[in-house]
Structure formats: C-alpha cells, structure tokens
Simulated assay, not measured.
Amino acid sequence: MRILVVHNYYQHQGGEDMVFHQEINALRQDHEVTELTFQNKTGFSGLLQFLSYPFNLIASNRIKRAIKDSRPDVVHIHNIHYASGPMIISAVNSSRIPIVMTLHNYRLICPSATLFYKNSIFTNSLTENFPWTAVKLGVLDNSVLKSFWVACSYWIHKKLGTFHKINTFIVLSDFAKSVFLKSKINLPSDNFAVKGNYVADPQMSPQAKGESFIFIGRLAEEKGILPLIEALKGTSHFLKIFGAGPQQHEVERLTADVPNITYFGFQENDVIQQHLIDANALLVPSICYEGMPMTILESFALSTPVISSNIGILAKMVIPLYTGLHFDPFEKRSIIASLDQWQSLDSSVKSSIGANCRKEYIDKYTPTRNMSTLIAIYKNVILNTKQS
C-alpha cells in the first residue's frame, strides 16, 4: 500500500509529533510511505502563515505535487494548525484520493483545541454554531484576535463542506467521539473510527513496587500539578515529579525543602522508565479532557497502577480497583483519601491490579494491535472510494 502521511509541526515538539513519528516508522515496515510535513514559524514568516490559515495556496500546491509524485492509495492527515490549514483537505479531495484524518484535539470545534480555559473544562463551543464565547474570552493564548481567526478558519470550511470530504476521522477514544457528535460540527457517526495511541513494549520484568508515587508530564495548569503538590505537602505520601513546562518555577518553589516531594526536572525516557517501574502508582491529576496520555500506556506496560482524576477519558481508561483508583482533582480531601485507600490495600491486591494493567496494555495498546486497526481503516476507505 502507498500512503502519504501529512503533518504540521508546532513550534515546540509535543505528543502529536510522537504519534506521527511512531506511525510513520511502523507503517514503513510493510508499506511504501511518503511524508509531507509543515513547520510553524515565528516572526514575520509565522504571521504570514497564520494569516494564510483559511486558504493556504502554497500548502495546497505542495500537497498536490506530493500526490502526483507518490501516487498514494490513501492520504492520512494529522495536524493542520496552522502552516498547512484546512484547504489542503480540498486539495487532496480534488485528486480523488481517499482521506483519513486523526483528530488529536478538539480544534475542529473550538479554538482552544483542549476544551479547557482558566482552570476548568470549557464546553460552550459544542453548542454554538460559531464559537463566539471562546472568541470573546480569548481562549487561544489569551488573544481575542487569534481565537477569532482560528474560529473563522474552521467555520468557513465548515460552511464550505470541507470536513465532509474526509472519508474517516480517527479519534483516540469513544469519549472523544461522543464529544464531536454532541457538537455543531454535524458529522455523521459513521465518519468516525476509534483508534487509540500505543507504546512499544518496554520488555522489562515486573518488580516489587516502592513507596513513592510518581507524576510524569508537562508542568502546566491543565495537568493539575500544583493542586496535587498542595494536597500532598506535609503528608506521609512520597511523590516524585518528572517534567518541564510553564509552571516549572512554581513547582520548584513549592517543592523546595518539602521532604516528601522531589522534583527531578526533565529526564530521558530510560531514566523515567526505571522510576516508573519502581513506583507505587502513577498519579494523573489532569483537570482537562485528555486525549490518551502516553504516560498511562507506559505505566500499564510496566504493570504500574494508575491513580487519576475522574475527568473525560481518564474515567474510562482507569478502572477503580482493576487498574487503579480515581479522585476529584479539585478536592484536596479526595486526592488524599484516594492515596490513603491505595496504601491500605493488601499487597496481593496491588499486585493483582498491576497484573491487570499489563493485561490492559497487551489487549489494547501494543504496536501490533494499533497498526492492525489503522491498516483496516485504510483498506476500508480505499474500498469504499472504489465502490462509490
């Protein structure tokens, strides 16, 4: 199969880039893959890219040339924000090539992309034909102008029917699918296929767990790291924190001279894996709608249970007393109560939960299972295009 994979890099590397590279490398083992990438820029060049967001002729011409050169059976689009833009969808459609698009976030229905604003879930855009509330609040980078331009770009293409030219949208979970179906994007349920993320099998033997809990991730408001620290300070629960981000200085300040909390900063994956396999449990205190956290998949692969907030997909991925526990991330007492409950469990129960985590990984999140699902999606859209 010949596959053209299209992706738009942000200015700073993120999880979407990791998924893109994972899939490219896996697909190349059995298929002929061409990649076409765009890069968001800063300064004047970045401004021109952003202004061209709704109708980027340069990006559209690039993808037409790539299709002519590679003659793909299917085109798979990942991120289109903002150097490429939604017009590339019409460019692919004009070549009569089936299109698959992965929705890594909710930008299609809200300029926030995360449905998160100022420390809380923000869902106003789901019920508005045009996300005026999001624009007025400046949900994108606290900018009314940026929020308006992104909202306009997607609203224009919604009116033009651009998104109906996508044969299949890939979403990471049934939860994400339900969010899109509730929105005013007005796409049929049959246009969505669920395919989660995956991680490579670390192939590390399970071992006895230590006493410390562990947090791994971006140090940002939506990840709930500061409330977690405030909840655990001065308790008998030990916490290791790995990561970097906009709240790093605040994390360093809050954890200084706190004996039960240690901040390790940004570390390479092999170092983090060693701490994760030894951890009592992974803590995921997110206060936003997560996509599908790679840290949870890595934790499952290492037989390490997860104690998470009860928001969005986390309420589905983490099953109480099967793969971990839940807490209310907005309630300090709830966080402490969950950790106290975990500590009170018999060691045999914890071991059984760890084994369940490994089973969840094997059943749902391996590269083989993931790529099998992706190839089935490709074959389905190719077959349906030939029959239409």
Rank of each mutant, 00 (worst) to 15 (best):
P188D: 04
L140N: 11
H164I: 04
Y154K: 05
N129Q: 12
V150T: 13
I121Y: 00
E128K: 12
S178C: 06
K177C: 08
I166C: 02
K158E: 09
L187R: 07
G138K: 07
L187K: 08
N124T: 11
G161F: 11
K158G: 13
G138S: 06
V150S: 05
V144N: 01
V150G: 06
K165P: 00
K165T: 01
V171M: 11
P188G: 03
I166A: 05
F122W: 10
N167Q: 12
F169R: 08
A134V: 09
S125V: 03
T133E: 14
C152K: 13
G161E: 12
A193G: 10
V135G: 05
I185V: 15
H164F: 10
T123N: 11
T133P: 01
L137N: 14
A134R: 04
F122Y: 12
N119T: 11
V194C: 03
K165H: 11
T168A: 03
S143D: 11
Y198P: 01
F163I: 07
G196E: 04
P131A: 12
F175C: 03
T123W: 00
S153A: 15
I166V: 15
I170A: 06
K184H: 05
S178T: 15
N142E: 10
W149F: 07
N119H: 13
W155Y: 14
V171F: 07
A134M: 05
S189T: 08
N119I: 02
F130G: 07
V135Q: 06
T162R: 13
W132S: 08
L172H: 12
A151C: 07
T168D: 02
F192D: 04
K159I: 13
V179L: 12
G161H: 10
F180K: 12
H164Y: 14
D174R: 07
S120E: 14
L140T: 07
V144A: 02
K182P: 03
T162G: 15
I170C: 03
F169K: 07
T123D: 09
S189V: 10
L181V: 03
G138Y: 09
F163V: 08
S173Y: 04
A193E: 14
N124A: 14
K146S: 05
K195C: 02
E128R: 07
F122D: 06
S143R: 09
L187H: 13
C152Q: 15
F130N: 06
V179E: 10
A176W: 11
W155D: 03
D141S: 11
L140P: 00
G138I: 00
K165Y: 04
A151S: 15
K136E: 00
F169S: 03
S143C: 09
V135D: 04
T123H: 04
K146V: 01
T162I: 11
N167W: 12
N186W: 06
S183Q: 10
S173G: 07
D141W: 06
L137F: 10
L181D: 06
V194K: 01
V139H: 06
L145E: 02
I156K: 10
S120F: 00
S120Y: 00
K158L: 09
N119D: 13
T168W: 00
L145W: 14
K182A: 12
I166F: 06
